[in-house]
Design a binder for these strands. Structure first.
Lengths: 190, 190
DNA sequence: GAGCGCCGGAACGCAACCGTTGCGTCCTGG
DNA sequence: CCAGGACGCAACGGTTGCGTTCCGGCGCTC
């Protein structure tokens, strides 16, 4: 019976409020104001702030990050980095994600939701790419997939969400070359 | 004239409150309660919440991260990663840093302070380590210091502050080996 | 031992937000 | 045409926090 356009307006308002003030300062009243909606309409849909935010955020997060499969590890890597960098450069995402990550450190429910919505998927993507590369002989058999994921996503996240230095195509190419070098068979010291 | 022990108690309380509830929810009243101090004592020292937090946090941040100089790039790298990983595993730091990073995305004053207190110093450390390595011939001459910093700190930050997966010595060694591989002269594709 | 300044504590007026309720309107299906 | 439900709006009492003010007490210094 709930009107869909209203629900959509609320979802939208929550995302924007989250980006602007963060979870800690998010208020139901501000969401209602922003959505042009009565508080009643919100409480009719969710029982409190936490539940509302979690439901909305995971709904958004679930439709993202496709699985690259270009036929070569170098290609997969470049594509993945391109996608992730685009996502992290998105105005709203780049505000919300670090905020919720920080919040997750003190709220187990947020942590769990984020884990399910982001980490798990990213890990699966990483493992698949690395697994394919190993099968093709592009990476050594013992390659640590966890380490690979950290190497692929860590620098991007650091750069875009933490130090917030702009990124260009050159940088992205250098980065993927470097990561490629990092994961290849270790060479003797000289 | 202000009593030093009281100032110290307030500083301490602010750090702990920041870790527990984050900047967004930090309240002067809670800080006073926690420090066992009247609000008056706080307002006598700082004029508002933002100024207080910035002054205290930068004071703490300024005394950290020594400059490694072990004589070899591999040694410097391992030492730096060890220090940073210890710092990021510190209970309070690992809560406060991501929180302020997220807050910095929407508050320019916080961003500026963090930039000065953390980024600038880290960048200097990275540049020095890379510069020394290039002089010794351990890294190619054109090595991009920015990229190197991202590769060194990004995965650690990602792992410890974002995905919050525990780290052991083995992982740290694998990571530094990988970063070493990433920064060496690029090899031809096969 | 008088005075000064910091101290904690209590209370102030003001604002924001919580979650709930009641009102009158609008839309829809029977 | 009518019942019912979702809507917005406004108001409720209660809580929390702001930044300020005033108080009495305590420990300096002169």
């Amino acid at each position: 019976m709930l009107r869909g356009d209203i629900t959509a307006a609320i979802r939208n308002a929550v995302m924007n409020e989250l980006a602007e003030v963060g979870y800690g300062r998010l208020s139901i009243e501000a969401v209602a104001r922003r959505a042009g909606v009565g508080k009643t309409a919100i409480y009719r849909r969710w029982s409190n702030k936490l539940e509302m935010v979690l439901e909305i955020v995971s709904a958004v997060a679930e439709r993202s990050v496709p699985m690259p499969d270009t036929g070569s590890f170098a290609g997969d890597l470049q594509l993945l980095m391109f996608i992730v960098s685009k996502a992290l450069q998105h105005q709203i995402a780049s505000q919300i994600i670090p905020d919720l990550m920080a919040e997750a450190a003190r709220n187990p429910k947020i942590a769990e939701t984020l884990q399910r919505a982001l980490r798990t998927h990213q890990q699966a993507v990483g493992e698949k790419i690395v697994g394919q590369a190993v099968e093709r002989g592009e990476l050594p058999a013992g390659t640590n997939a966890d380490l690979a994921v950290d190497l692929m996503l860590g620098p991007l996240y650091w750069r875009l969400a933490v130090s917030r230095t702009p990124i260009d195509d050159d940088y992205l190419e250098n980065l993927s070359t470097a990561v490629l070098g990092a994961l290849r068979e270790p060479r003797p010291a000289h």
